[in-house]
Design a binder for these strands. Sequence first.
DNA 1: CAGTATCCGAGTAGATACTG
DNA 2: CAGTATCTACTCGGATACTG
Lengths: 102, 102
Amino acid sequence: MAVQDAMDVLYGKWNIAILSAIGFYNKRSVYDISNDVGGISNKMLSKELKELEINMLITRTVLNTKPVTVQYQLTEHGNTLRTIIDNLTDWGKEHRVKIIGK
Amino acid sequence: MAVQDAMDVLYGKWNIAILSAIGFYNKRSVYDISNDVGGISNKMLSKELKELEINMLITRTVLNTKPVTVQYQLTEHGNTLRTIIDNLTDWGKEHRVKIIGK
DNA sequence: CAGTATCCGAGTAGATACTG
DNA sequence: CAGTATCTACTCGGATACTG
């Protein structure tokens, strides 16, 4: 099922939060992303960023600063995913009202 | 994040497949769902159906047959989720073409 | 700052056997 | 047929310490 290809990308405790953190401002350092997401470990952030890059949702740029800075930003493909995330967010809100009760 | 409320429902190896199996025909027995999904164990199917019911996405009806038959069908709320799944499926197809290459 | 390696606990899911 | 119980294996994610 094709839907599983999408779920592979979306799934994970941090994936969507990271995409949102990058997407809102565009061009973020690992440090900034880490702060925005909050509570994520170095290992997880690093791992997820790598996967997102492989999936062509974000690009990675190394800057010649000292110490090194690495910038991430959404690709065009990554931006198309944001629409989906928005839809999911809307549905999630409705669902929460219905099930959890506000 | 509200999107996580949606992901809680969508996540899992079988969740979406089960919803699709029920949704296409509406009113399915456990036996039918199991056949449609394919490869799912009794334990998993049972567990997922229970969760979906708690989340008010499906309803459970016990029929007075012998042996017992149980019918599941999507609720209205469950149907709103199908739109999301369709979107995810479309995105998944694009993604597959882009990344995996058809 | 960015990234990697290791160790460990908790949760997820499979196989199998069983009840009504 | 529908559902439960048990036992086991594997993956996920957190904590920590380390390199350039």
